[in-house]
């Protein structure tokens, strides 16, 4: 179980980090105001500072009002549901990078339908493959938009 307080602190730290990254990146360039107006680093620099400042503000607000934020951010039950959705999605991206988007699509759809949707294995696998084939025809054949491909497509001689 995660409390709202923890989530607030975590997110504010993340945004502060992003702001800091902008500040550091901007320092590589001039951040002053030359006679041709602001230099190229000025804008990201001050925006970054602003984000850091506002994030620290949020952190402070969260710490001060801590007892008001003891409400639950994520129940165990909810966390399980989110994980059951997020982890397959993460796996989908990993597989897509390794085997291409079509194979990943077929595997992902088939698995999710079978495991989570409780469909029969045959139906799930058929739907997954059918979806990948439809995407192939719509995108590659009809609209000539190439998707990320992997070893299977190469073996089949598809480009």
């Amino acid at each position: 179980m995660i409390s709202r307080y923890t989530a607030e602190i975590g997110t504010a730290t993340l945004t502060a980090g992003l702001g800091l990254a902008a500040v550091i990146g901007a320092l590589e360039f001039g951040i002053g105001w030359g006679d041709a107006g602001p230099e190229s680093g000025a804008f990201p620099f001050y925006i970054g500072l602003l984000v850091v400042a506002a994030s620290i503000g949020t952190l402070t607000q969260a710490t001060v009002g801590r007892h008001g934020l003891q409400s639950v951010f994520l129940h165990k039950e909810e966390a399980k549901r989110v994980a059951s959705f997020f982890l397959p999605m993460l796996a989908f991206v990993v597989v897509a990078r390794l085997l291409g988007l079509y194979v990943a699509t077929a595997l992902y759809l088939a698995l999710v339908m079978w495991v989570q949707g409780k469909y029969r294995l045959v139906i799930s696998v058929t739907s997954g493959i059918a979806a990948a084939v439809i995407f192939y025809f719509v995108l590659e054949v009809a609209f000539q938009v190439p998707l990320l491909k992997g070893p299977l497509e190469a073996a089949l001689g598809l480009y």
Binding site: F85, P88, M89, F92, V93, A96, L101, T105, Y108, L109, V112, M113, Q116, G117, K118, Y119, S127, A131, F135, L139, L147
Partner: peptide, 13 residues
């Protein structure tokens, strides 16, 4: 269970 994953796939494509 069907449309959710399809939206995921469409988003990434």
């Amino acid at each position: 269970a069907i449309i959710g994953p399809v939206i995921v796939v469409v988003c990434f494509i």
